[in-house]
Protein backbone atom coordinates (compact mmCIF):
# COMPACT_ATOMS: atom_id res chain seq x y z
CA UNK A 1 0.00 0.00 0.00
CA UNK A 2 1.33 3.41 -1.03
CA UNK A 3 2.07 5.74 1.86
CA UNK A 4 1.03 9.35 1.70
CA UNK A 5 3.10 12.10 3.30
CA UNK A 6 1.02 14.04 5.81
CA UNK A 7 3.70 16.18 7.43
CA UNK A 8 7.29 17.29 6.94
CA UNK A 9 8.83 19.77 9.33
CA UNK A 10 12.31 21.12 9.81
CA UNK A 11 13.66 21.09 13.37
CA UNK A 12 16.39 23.46 14.46
CA UNK A 13 19.04 22.69 17.00
CA UNK A 14 18.33 24.18 20.44
CA UNK A 15 15.07 25.77 19.28
CA UNK A 16 13.10 25.22 22.50
CA UNK A 17 10.62 27.86 21.38
CA UNK A 18 9.29 25.66 18.55
CA UNK A 19 10.10 22.35 20.26
CA UNK A 20 6.92 20.27 20.29
CA UNK A 21 5.31 21.97 17.31
CA UNK A 22 5.89 19.11 14.89
CA UNK A 23 4.28 16.71 17.39
CA UNK A 24 1.43 19.09 17.99
CA UNK A 25 0.84 19.58 14.23
CA UNK A 26 0.91 15.87 13.63
CA UNK A 27 -1.53 15.28 16.46
CA UNK A 28 -4.01 17.71 14.88
CA UNK A 29 -3.59 16.13 11.44
CA UNK A 30 -4.21 12.62 12.82
CA UNK A 31 -7.28 13.77 14.68
CA UNK A 32 -8.71 15.30 11.54
CA UNK A 33 -8.03 12.02 9.74
CA UNK A 34 -10.13 10.26 12.40
CA UNK A 35 -7.29 8.17 13.91
CA UNK A 36 -8.36 6.84 17.32
CA UNK A 37 -7.21 8.72 20.42
CA UNK A 38 -4.95 5.94 21.81
CA UNK A 39 -2.97 5.85 18.60
CA UNK A 40 -2.84 9.65 18.46
CA UNK A 41 -1.42 9.66 21.99
CA UNK A 42 1.18 6.98 21.20
CA UNK A 43 2.24 8.84 18.09
CA UNK A 44 2.39 12.17 19.95
CA UNK A 45 4.70 10.72 22.61
CA UNK A 46 6.98 9.09 20.05
CA UNK A 47 7.15 12.22 17.91
CA UNK A 48 7.73 14.57 20.84
CA UNK A 49 10.56 12.45 22.26
CA UNK A 50 12.27 12.25 18.87
CA UNK A 51 11.65 15.91 18.12
CA UNK A 52 13.22 17.01 21.40
CA UNK A 53 16.16 14.68 20.77
CA UNK A 54 16.82 16.60 17.57
CA UNK A 55 16.48 19.93 19.43
CA UNK A 56 18.71 18.89 22.33
CA UNK A 57 21.32 16.62 20.78
CA UNK A 58 21.62 17.30 17.06
CA UNK A 59 22.72 20.07 14.73
CA UNK A 60 19.23 20.17 13.20
CA UNK A 61 17.03 17.82 11.26
CA UNK A 62 13.65 16.99 9.86
CA UNK A 63 10.56 15.03 10.87
CA UNK A 64 8.39 13.40 8.24
CA UNK A 65 5.13 11.52 8.80
CA UNK A 66 3.53 9.20 6.28
CA UNK A 67 0.32 7.22 6.47
CA UNK A 68 -1.24 4.29 4.66
CA UNK A 69 -4.43 2.43 5.51
CA UNK A 70 -2.45 0.01 7.70
CA UNK A 71 0.22 2.04 9.41
CA UNK A 72 1.81 5.32 10.28
CA UNK A 73 5.49 5.96 9.61
CA UNK A 74 7.52 8.61 11.43
CA UNK A 75 10.96 9.40 10.04
CA UNK A 76 13.39 11.60 11.90
CA UNK A 77 16.62 12.52 10.16
CA UNK A 78 19.28 14.76 11.61
CA UNK A 79 22.68 15.90 10.43
CA UNK A 80 24.72 14.80 13.40
CA UNK A 81 26.72 14.37 15.55
CA UNK A 82 25.26 10.87 15.89
CA UNK A 83 24.64 8.65 18.91
CA UNK A 84 27.93 7.33 20.22
CA UNK A 85 26.63 4.18 21.86
CA UNK A 86 23.20 3.03 20.68
CA UNK A 87 22.94 0.22 23.24
CA UNK A 88 23.50 2.64 26.08
CA UNK A 89 21.01 5.11 24.58
CA UNK A 90 18.29 2.49 25.08
CA UNK A 91 19.21 1.91 28.72
CA UNK A 92 16.59 3.50 31.01
CA UNK A 93 18.20 6.38 32.88
CA UNK A 94 21.19 6.78 30.54
CA UNK A 95 21.56 10.26 29.08
CA UNK A 96 24.28 12.45 27.63
CA UNK A 97 22.27 15.66 28.25
CA UNK A 98 23.92 18.55 30.07
CA UNK A 99 22.91 19.66 33.56
CA UNK A 100 21.16 22.69 32.07
CA UNK A 101 18.96 20.43 29.95
CA UNK A 102 18.31 18.09 32.86
CA UNK A 103 17.13 20.96 35.01
CA UNK A 104 14.38 21.55 32.46
CA UNK A 105 13.09 18.03 33.01
CA UNK A 106 14.72 16.52 29.91
CA UNK A 107 17.62 14.12 29.91
CA UNK A 108 15.98 11.62 32.24
CA UNK A 109 17.22 8.86 29.96
CA UNK A 110 13.69 7.77 29.14
CA UNK A 111 13.28 9.27 25.66
CA UNK A 112 14.26 6.37 23.41
CA UNK A 113 12.87 3.97 26.00
CA UNK A 114 9.47 5.62 25.55
CA UNK A 115 9.82 5.56 21.77
CA UNK A 116 10.59 1.84 21.84
CA UNK A 117 7.65 1.17 24.14
CA UNK A 118 5.11 2.76 21.82
CA UNK A 119 6.57 1.87 18.42
CA UNK A 120 5.49 -1.33 16.70
CA UNK A 121 8.76 -1.25 14.81
CA UNK A 122 11.79 0.94 15.40
CA UNK A 123 14.99 1.22 13.39
CA UNK A 124 17.86 3.58 14.15
CA UNK A 125 20.99 4.18 12.13
CA UNK A 126 23.50 6.55 13.55
CA UNK A 127 27.04 7.61 12.73
CA UNK A 128 29.24 10.62 13.30
CA UNK A 129 29.51 11.20 9.54
CA UNK A 130 25.86 10.78 8.53
CA UNK A 131 23.87 11.79 11.62
CA UNK A 132 20.97 9.86 13.09
CA UNK A 133 18.09 8.37 11.11
CA UNK A 134 15.12 6.98 12.98
CA UNK A 135 12.15 5.18 11.46
CA UNK A 136 9.13 4.27 13.57
CA UNK A 137 6.14 2.27 12.40
CA UNK A 138 2.87 2.37 14.33
CA UNK A 139 0.12 0.01 13.24
CA UNK A 140 -3.26 1.62 12.84
CA UNK A 141 -5.19 -1.57 13.58
Amino acid sequence: MQKQQIMCKEIESFDFQSGGEASSNLKNILRKLGVNSDLVRKTSIVTYELEMNVVIHSLGGEITALISEEELEIRVDDVGPGIEDLDKAFTPGYSTASNEIREMGFGAGMGLVNVKRYADKLTIESSKENGTHVKVLIKLF
Binding site: F16, G19, E21, S24, Y48
Partner: peptide
Protein backbone atom coordinates in the same frame (compact mmCIF):
# COMPACT_ATOMS: atom_id res chain seq x y z
CA UNK B 1 9.37 26.78 31.09
CA UNK B 2 7.73 26.74 27.68
CA UNK B 3 8.20 23.03 26.99
CA UNK B 4 5.82 22.33 29.85
CA UNK B 5 3.13 23.93 27.68
CA UNK B 6 4.07 21.68 24.74
CA UNK B 7 3.82 18.55 26.89
CA UNK B 8 0.57 19.70 28.53
CA UNK B 9 -0.90 20.25 25.09
CA UNK B 10 0.12 16.82 23.80
Amino acid sequence: HQNVVAVALL
